[in-house]
């Protein structure tokens, strides 16, 4: 899990790259890491373009991150879902909770473009 801060759009956005499989064993490290990321910024982007597999516990971890971001008046946005991962989001109706973008750059830019969108939620 690589993590970097992006300040190009006048707002500090944390971009995390998720890789490989996100299942019961992978979700605990994610939860731990995301707590650390939250201290830096509540505006997060998860780049899922290299995420091959996700199960319900992985999904739970991502939804947990979203909840924390929302509590801190931020948002968690997803980018680059692979078809298989997208299918899990569709199946579980989790897609409706997230703003999803085709790549991390767009997702990061979206925070700068619509700062009001966050308040609307």
């Amino acid at each position: 899990m690589k993590f970097r801060l992006d300040t190009q759009n006048g707002i500090t956005v944390g971009i995390a790259e998720l890789e490989g499989r996100l299942d019961a064993s992978g979700s605990a490290p994610l939860q731990k890491a995301s707590a650390d990321w939250q201290t830096k910024t509540p505006f997060l982007v998860f780049d899922c373009s290299r995420l091959d597999f996700i199960d319900s516990s992985g999904l739970g971890a991502i939804v947990g991150c979203l909840r924390r971001s929302l509590e801190n008046n931020g948002d968690l946005r997803l980018a680059g879902l692979t078809p298989k991962v997208a299918m899990v989001f569709d199946l579980t109706k989790a897609r409706k909770l997230f703003s999803i973008f085709s790549n991390a750059g767009e997702a990061a830019a979206s925070f700068g473009a619509t700062p009001t969108a966050i308040q609307e939620r």
């Binding site: 299942d23 597999f53 199960d55 319900s56 078809p83 298989k84 299918m87 899990v88 199946l91 579980t92």
Partner: peptide, 12 residues
């Protein structure tokens, strides 16, 4: 698309 996904969660 022909994408297949084998779910690992028996509750899904």
């Amino acid at each position: 698309s022909g994408v297949t996904l084998a779910m690992q969660d028996p509750h899904l």
